[in-house]
């Protein structure tokens, strides 16, 4: 079985490091790609060759919410808009990845069609298992 391609979008270097370390212990994931802003993510996502078409599996996106410039939600809305216009790749699984347990943030995540789940920081062994389950759900 091929591994899951992962990209983490988070302005906090330490949080990206924690993701890399935790996912590295689990054989199911490929080496984690990381970007610090929503802008960088969109650029990487729509660049040629497409991130997603290089993979046999949908790309897993761990998206932080609270980031300077563009929030995680804004990034996803922009992604959805460009996917519609562009009829680009839709083989993507987005999970919100945040320290916020705020009901408003959870509700907002549920309202976005491309968001498949919500993972609360910090990422630990249980969190890794949750990510795997959400990804295959």
């Amino acid at each position: 079985m091929s591994k899951i391609p992962v990209i983490v979008v988070d302005d906090e270097t330490i949080d990206r490091y924690i993701v890399k370390r935790q996912l590295a212990k689990c054989d199911d994931f490929e080496q984690v790609l990381e970007v610090a802003t929503g802008g960088e993510f969109l650029e990487a996502y729509f660049s040629e060759p497409r991130l997603t078409t290089q993979q046999s599996k949908p790309l897993l996106v761990l998206m932080d919410i609270n980031m300077p410039q563009m929030s995680g939600f804004e990034t996803i809305e922009e992604l959805q808009r460009r996917m519609d216009v562009d009829s680009g790749p839709d083989s993507v699984v987005i999970l919100m990845f945040t320290s916020s347990n705020n009901p408003e943030d959870r509700a907002k995540a549920e309202s976005l069609p491309t968001v498949k789940g919500y993972v609360v920081k910090p990422l630990d062994e249980g969190g890794v298992e949750t990510i795997r389950e959400l990804y295959y759900a």
Binding site: E12, D15, I18, S99, K121, P122, D124
Partner: peptide, 13 residues
Amino acid sequence: KAPLSSIVGLLNI
């Protein structure tokens, strides 16, 4: 809360 999450994550590692 965010920095505390980071601290817990790091200490876990």
